[in-house]
Each structure stands twice: as C-alpha cells, then as structure tokens.
Amino acid sequence: MSQVAVRRIFFSVLALLMSAPLLVVLGVSVNERKSLTFPPQGFNLSWYLDLFRLPDWSGALLNSVIVAFLSAALAVAIAFPLAWFNWRYRIGWVKGILAIGLMPFLLPPVITALGFLSFWTQTGFYGQAWTVVISHGIFLVSLPLVSLSLGFGSLDDSLPEAAATMGADNKVILKTIVFPLVRPYVISGFAFAFVVSLNEYLVAYMTVGAVIETLPMKIFNSLRYGYTPVMASASVFFVALTVIIFSLVARFGDLPKLLGAHSK
C-alpha cells in the first residue's frame, strides 16, 4: 500500500474520531425540546438565540470576550518590547528574562492560578474584576513572546542596517521597517493569546471566580447543576469562533512557519 493510501485512511479515521464529540454537541444543540438526545429530535435554533437573549449567558459571553481582548493586548504589550530588545541587542542575560516569560505556560496552570490567588489575597485586591486581566496577561505572555521571537528572528538584518547607514535611528527603523515586517507575528501572537484566554478556566476561576462568570465557567456550572441546551449552543459557538480565528491567522500568515516548521 502506498503512503498516500495509508495517509488517506489514517487521516479519515482520525478526523472522524476527533470531530465526533463536537458533532454530537452540534446535533444536541438543535434539539426541538429541552433534552439531551442524539440524533436530534426536530430542529430548532432558539438555543442559539438564547445564548444572546438570556442575560446570564450573554453576560458570561461578554465577560469572556472583554477579558480575552484586554489580556491579549496586555500580553502583546509586555512581549513586544522584550522580544524587540532581545533581537536588537542580543545580550546573553536577556534570555533569562525571556525564560521567566515562558515559565507560566510551561508549568501546569494550577501553579500560576494558586500563585495569583495568594498574591491577590495578600495584596488585598482579591475579588477585583481587573485582577483577571493581569493574571491572564501574565499567564499568556509566552504566546506572543514565542511568535514575536520567531518574527524578529526571520527578519533580514540588511534592511535595518541599510536604514541605519542612511541615518535612521532606532525609533524610525522600528516604525518604518521593523514593525510592518513583524506585523503578522504581532497579530498571530494576539490571536493565540485571545483564543486561549477566551477558553481558559482555571486561572480565571481561582482569581475572580467568586465575582465574575466567564463562559467556560458557566458551561462547567451548568454541567454540574443540570443540563440546558444553551450550553451546547454556547460550546458550538466557541468552537466556531476558535476555528474562525485560527483560519484567519492561517489566511493572513504562514501557519506552518508560525508553528516553527521548515518547508521541505
């Protein structure tokens, strides 16, 4: 059997197995009545409307989007100068600071979550809504840090050199040459952090779980306290949103390269 045939069979089986749980949720989300049955009985899109109509669900959705947007922006704001400085001056010990930025994502999330829980308690800010933005921003800083380091690393050094020879200083070179070239990496770093924050449960739960409910928390709570079809429509909505964002990243950037692959 040729490699292509093996590939087709293997990929088809895996695609089926990996999409099955999501397809069942999709089926359940269009049930006519408020029951967990598959194949769906009847067809009804009202659970999707409920996601936006019911204040507790739309509130949770809005919370998640706001937190994700702000913390992704914070993560990029921390990562960009750091990655730029590391690329521009190549000083050995700067790598140590980069390593701190990679730590939160390498360790199990519960470590960062517990660290923040005790930190916000000790500083007296526990329960303030904004603490989740800082917590997520730090937790996710690794993502833009990795994508931006890749971006700066892929720059052709002769371009800023030429600009410097012609009298441009750091600021001008950054604005007119470097930034336009690394923009795709800034956007993808932001997108990665945004999507992960949107879906993150544990850090958000342990920092602001008592005062804010994000969508992943809402889904988990509904799972514990009784089934409602809205949790299925909310899940489908999040899966779609996640796939769309990554598709856009792939559309406007080189996804294999962003993930560190070398083309053969």
Partner: peptide
Amino acid sequence: SESIIGFA
C-alpha cells in the same frame, strides 16, 4: 476550554 471538551 476543558469544560467544552469535557461536556462533549
């Protein structure tokens, strides 16, 4: 989210 995959 783990809550979505767990639910699925």
